[in-house]
């Protein structure tokens, strides 16, 4: 198989603060192949956005990559000078941020911003660039794009702004798209349209997508594989169907169980009790141990790395061969 388009190896992101160094992302490795969508889900604050930001070189200081490397097409991109990275960003990697306002300048019309971005990366004159901008707006489902193109960001609804940001990311046909909650502000039918658009890009242009979202429905429909993050680490990674339907990590279970389901009348939604630990006091051993219903003594002692758990890989001692063997002796199964 061909080399993956994106490779992240042992990534560690730190924030030096007055109160000591915070480790927000701790030893994450993942890859994305051409034409593939990797979904990234997980607890709020788990480090999903920071991972995305470090791939496009937009980690804001004092945040810094403290260890590990990031490779695009086999070439390191985590140590490039600013100007070099700026060219890659937009041209080779398109970014859709969680916060549409950081990507849009309130002082310029959306058309101005789209045309400028298009002309930075593609050899087009003003007229061609304007036409491409209108086409892109139409593609992301903005009605009457030839009129809307001259409007300012504040004149758009939340979901429409989000779509303008998506159009901006697609301007130069990038090879890799980092999409951080791209459909969060969108209603289901526009969501379907954006997802269809992302899938079409993957299929027709071999674009690879890292899709960060909380919406499991979107993941189920779009992603090929999913990474589940918890407290700065990957808890589980594997094919989408296996992770959603038959997740192995106890946190994955808790997460899937919290999804409200249409037509189920429950007074109270299932929730995982407790909160994710603060970065300053991550427990020793497995970070999920205070909330885990399956916790056992080893979980307090040693930190699990990703282990083979059948169809997926899970960072959980239940899937350690020793534990499996011990469980077999006592007649229990290690299956969660």
């Amino acid at each position: 198989m061909a080399d993956p388009l994106l490779k992240v190896e042992n990534l560690r992101i730190e924030f030096p603060t007055r109160r000591g160094t915070l480790v927000a992302v701790d030893d994450i490795s993942l890859h994305i192949n051409k034409g593939e969508v990797l979904g990234v889900v997980g607890e709020s604050g788990a480090g999903k956005s920071l991972t995305g930001a470090s791939i496009i070189g937009l980690l804001e200081p004092p945040g810094r990559i403290a260890a590990g490397q990031i490779l695009l097409d086999g070439k390191r991109i985590d140590n490039l000078p600013y100007e070099k990275m700026r060219q890659i960003r937009g041209r080779e990697i398109g970014a859709i941020f969680q916060d549409p306002l950081t990507s849009l300048n309130p002082l310029y019309s959306v058309g101005f911003q789209l045309i400028e971005t298009i002309q930075t990366h593609l050899p087009m004159d003003k007229q061609q660039a304007r036409q491409r901008a209108i086409d892109l707006l139409a593609e992301v489902g903005i009605p009457a794009p030839e009129r809307r193109i001259d409007h300012y960001p504040h004149q758009f609804s939340g979901g429409m702004r989000q779509r303008v940001v998506i159009a901006l990311a697609l301007c130069a046909n990038p090879k890799l798209i980092i999409a951080d909650e791209p459909t969060t502000a969108l209603d289901v039918s526009i969501q379907a349209q954006i997802i269809a658009l992302l899938k079409r890009l993957c299929r027709d242009h071999g674009t690879a997508v890292m899709l960060v979202t909380h919406d499991m429905g979107v993941i189920a429909e779009t992603a090929d594989r999913v990474a589940v993050m918890y407290a700065g680490r990957i808890a589980e990674i594997g094919p989408v169907k296996e992770v959603i339907k038959d997740g192995k990590h106890p946190y994955t279970h808790g997460l899937m169980g919290s999804i409200p389901i249409l037509g189920h009348d429950t007074e109270k939604l299932t929730q995982i009790e407790g909160a994710m630990p603060r970065l300053t006091d991550i427990p020793t051993g497995c970070a999920y141990n205070p909330r885990c219903p399956k916790v056992f003594d080893r979980c307090y002692r040693d930190r699990p790395d990703l282990l083979d758990a059948g169809t997926t890989r899970a960072a959980c001692w239940l899937y350690d061969d020793d534990a499996k063997a011990a469980a077999a002796v006592t007649g229990e199964t290690a299956h969660v």
Partner: peptide, 9 residues
């Protein structure tokens, strides 16, 4: 809408 499903719950 900006929350993961467990915090959302």
């Amino acid at each position: 809408s900006a929350l993961d499903v467990s915090v959302q719950a």
